[in-house]
Simulated scan of single mutants.
Amino acid sequence: MSRTKSLWLVLAAVLAVIVSYQTVASTADRSGQFVADADVPTVAPGADVLAGVAVVPERMRGHDYRRAAFGEAWTDDNDAPGGHNGCDTRNDILDRDLVDKTYTSISRCPTAVATGVLHDPYTNVVISFMRGNQTGAAVQIEHIVPLAYAWDQGARNWSEDMRVRFANDPANLLAVQGEANQDKGDQEPARWMPPNAAFHCQYAMQFIAVLRGYGLPVDAPSVPALRQATDTCPRG
C-alpha cells in the first residue's frame, strides 16, 4: 500500500497569513486509483464549499502578468516543515511529498532530496526521482492556484512581500508529474482538472481554501467545476 503526502488546509488572513497543515494521505484501491483515506476533506451536508469566496463573472485576464512580480523562483522564507533551514521552498516540498528518499547536501541545503519516489496525485503514476541535470523535468513543484491566475484575480494589487509569500506558501504547492504541470499551465478549474478523478475532491477543496485564505475571487465558469469536484468528497 503506497502513501503520498499531498495537501494542507489554509487558515489565512489577507494581511497576516497563518497556515495550518493537514497531511492528506492516499491509498490505492483495487483499480489502482489513488483514493483518499480518513484525512480527505469532508463536507458537511448542505454546506456551501464556496462560502466566503467572492464570484466574479469571468477571469480578469490581463497582459501585464510578470513572474518576477512574485519574487525569485524559490526562497528559504517559507512555512514548510523545516523551513528557514538553508533549503529553498522547492527542496522543502520535494522532502514533504516524496517517499523512500535519500539525501545529499547542495549549496546551503544540507538535506536536499537526492532520490525518491513520487506517487503523483494528478495522474496516478509513480515516478522515480533522481537529482541531476534534468531534476526539474520529471517532478515539478506546482502552484495549485496558478500565479498568473492569482495575478488576474487581484494579486497585481498586493504588496511584493505578499506575492512572494503566496508564491512560496506550502499550502499552495504540490510536487507533481512535470508533464501534468505543463499541461495545466495557468488554467483555472473551468479549463483544467487533474486527470486522476480520484483526486478531484482534494484539488478543489485546496483550490478553494487558498482563494479564501488570500481573499481572491473565483471566476464564475469555474464554480460548477469546483462544485462538481467537491461533490465527490465524503460527507461528514
Rank of each mutant, 00 (worst) to 15 (best):
R3C: 05
T4M: 04
K5S: 11
S6H: 11
W8I: 10
W8Q: 01
L9A: 02
V10T: 14
V14S: 05
V14C: 02
I18D: 15
V19A: 10
Y21K: 01
Q22W: 02
T23K: 03
T23M: 07
V24N: 02
A25Y: 07
A28G: 04
A28L: 06
S31I: 09
Q33V: 15
F34G: 09
V35R: 14
V40S: 02
G46L: 12
A47M: 12
L50N: 00
V56S: 03
R59P: 04
G62T: 11
H63T: 14
R66G: 03
R67H: 07
R67N: 03
A69T: 09
E72P: 08
D77W: 05
A80G: 11
G83P: 13
G83A: 11
C87A: 10
R90T: 03
I93S: 00
D95N: 10
D97T: 13
D97V: 06
D100T: 07
D100E: 13
D100G: 13
K101N: 07
Y103E: 01
R108L: 09
C109Q: 02
T111R: 15
A112M: 12
A114D: 11
A114E: 07
T115Q: 14
G116M: 10
V117M: 11
V117S: 05
L118Q: 04
P121G: 06
Y122L: 12
V126R: 14
M130G: 12
G132P: 11
Q134C: 07
G136M: 05
A137H: 11
E142V: 06
E142W: 10
L147S: 12
A148R: 07
Y149R: 10
W151V: 13
W151R: 06
D152P: 06
D152C: 05
M162V: 02
M162I: 04
R163E: 08
V164K: 11
P170S: 12
A175L: 09
V176G: 01
Q177K: 09
N181E: 04
K184W: 09
G185P: 06
Q187W: 07
A190C: 07
M193P: 02
A198T: 15
A198E: 10
F199P: 08
C201Q: 00
C201V: 14
Q202Y: 04
Y203D: 00
Q206Y: 03
F207G: 00
I208F: 10
V210D: 08
D219P: 04
P224K: 08
A225W: 06
A225M: 10
Q228K: 14
T232D: 00
C233Y: 12
C233Q: 09
R235Y: 08
